[in-house]
Design a protein around this nucleic acid. Structure first.
Length: 427
RNA sequence: GGAGCGUUGGCAGAGUGGUAAUGCAGCGGAUUGCUAAUCCGUGACCGUGUUAUAGCGGUCCACAGGUUCGAGUCCUGUACGCUCCGCCA
């Protein structure tokens, strides 16, 4: 959420953000309500001060009965005004939670992903001297999954990895986690079960009505828990309601967890293969830092993701996501897309996001400045370390051979006991 | 699943229904003069006010209700934690 003071002082900036991010402009409603709420606060506080004064006199007073009656009368007045105040504050809060984060001025402006801009392209898609196979053919011919059995057993949009490809998934995860540990990130293997509040805190959804997430999040029926769509949300809430010392910032985490998504709005898209599923494993980077350090942290994270693409020997490109595509809570977002030969296209493998203080306001995560002793909200950033299942698609397709075998990138070979390729006719 | 105990500032820790001690840490300042010591100040949030401070007022003792003129304190519910029992590995 945004600071109400910021909205008061910069209504035009906020209105513009609502417009370019495709959210309703509720700024005027907010300002009106805010005015009334502050009036009511002033009134009730003045009366409360009077009541407190009387209460203080009662123990020593001679005319106790009079004072008690007076105090009772004031209490009733206060109660009425407080009722209106609580009501108005609730509405105001809902509206505040439906205002999107202000995007960075250099983000492309547009309604959706069609306005995204490619900012650089690294590596050249390979020229094949045979017809490259799509992921599902490689999975089938190598026995690396069991689609019919899993559809029968667990339902659609789920897969089981088998044999050497399952080993490769572990290797990719381990590779990225170790790489991040070496870069100073603290490894946290996160739970996947969490509380709805934690999902709300992450700010992916608008409003303060927790039921809006029902379309996207698996609720665990009969409990007050749900399944996390990413370890980002767990990491984000780790220090909620805490005041951190400036000295501990930046705090850098590499999280790992199975991730669960309903994918309710994607019927018919990517129905085959490993791209879009209800459950997958993901390594995630997450940073808490001082707001002024946020920009350089973004560059660092984006660079980490690019480095991983290069370690995996994948041709890729970096996207500047448009205001309409970046999401409710983000200041800036860069997708990294890897080349997928069978689709003759780049597909999203990860994304690097600057959130500013938006999540920290929801989690109430603050830090105390050494110089002034002031308290301020931290800034947060998140980045895909590697979405393991999805990454296997370009890995298989780009590194495939005519016989259906797949070469293993050099950096992963040590984690595969030195094997240089997997699969092929021998299976 | 059952029972008991607990939750007070960054941490530790007092608090007969009359409006939150104290210690430590951190930060700021003063002083002495040298591997440091001593002293003083310093909680968060909101409103008001200010160029910015200050000031003034309100709220906050896990959370939400209730009793009361008045609740950290009494009552009810919830969450979380600890201990024990049961169950399972």
């Amino acid at each position: 959420m945004l600071d109400i003071k910021f909205i008061r002082e910069n209504p035009d900036i906020v209105k513009h953000a609502c417009q370019v991010k495709n959210y309703p402009d509720v700024v005027d409603d907010i300002l009106n309500l805010d005015k009334r709420v502050r009036e009511l606060k002033t009134i009730t506080q003045t009366k409360t001060a009077e009541k407190n004064k009387i209460s203080k006199e009662i123990p020593t007073a001679t005319n106790k009965a009079d004072l008690i009656a007076k105090s009772k009368a004031i209490s009733e007045e206060i109660a009425n005004e407080m009722a209106e105040l609580a009501d108005k504050e609730n509405v105001l809060n809902d509206l505040l939670h439906s205002v999107p984060q202000i995007p960075t001025p250099d983000a492309p402006i547009g309604p959706d992903e069609s306005a995204n801009v490619e900012i650089r392209r690294i590596g050249t898609p390979r020229t094949f001297d045979f017809t490259p196979r799509p992921q599902w053919d490689l999975l089938d011919m190598n026995g690396w999954w069991m689609p019919e059995q899993i559809a029968k057993t667990c339902g659609t949009r789920l897969y089981a990895l088998c044999g050497e490809l399952a080993e490769l998934e572990l290797a990719v995860q381990t590779y990225v986690i170790k790489k991040m540990i070496a870069k100073g990130f603290k490894f946290v293997a996160c739970p996947s079960i969490t509380k709805p509040q934690v999902i709300f805190n992450a700010g992916h959804f608008t409003g303060s009505d927790l039921s809006v997430m029902n379309d996207d999040v698996f609720m665990l029926e009969g409990t007050d828990r749900c399944l996390a769509g990413t370890s980002e949300i767990i990491l984000n809430s780790l220090y909620s309601d805490e005041i951190l010392s400036e000295n501990v910032l930046p705090m850098k985490f590499v999280g790992f967890s199975p991730c669960f998504r309903k994918e309710a709005g994607s019927a018919g898209r990517d129905t085959r293969g490993l791209i879009r599923v209800h459950q997958f494993n993901k390594v995630e980077q997450f940073i808490f830092c001082k707001p002024e350090d946020s920009e350089k942290m973004h560059e660092m994270l984006l660079n980490d993701l690019c480095e991983t693409m290069e370690d995996l020997e994948l041709p890729y490109r970096v996207i500047a996501n448009s205001t309409g595509d970046m999401g409710f809570n983000k200041v800036k977002m860069n997708d990294v897309e890897a080349w997928v030969p069978s689709e003759n296209a780049y597909r999203e493998l990860g994304s690097c996001s600057t959130i500013g203080q938006f999540q920290a306001r929801r989690t109430n995560t603050r830090y105390r400045k050494n110089a002034t002793n002031e308290v301020d909200f931290v800034a947060t950033l998140n980045n895909t370390g590697i979405a393991a299942g999805r990454a296997l698609v370009p890995l298989m397709e780009n590194h495939q051979n005519a016989d259906g075998s797949v070469n293993i990138p050099k950096k992963l070979q040590p984690l595969m006991d030195g094997r240089i390729k997997i699969g092929g006719k021998h299976q």
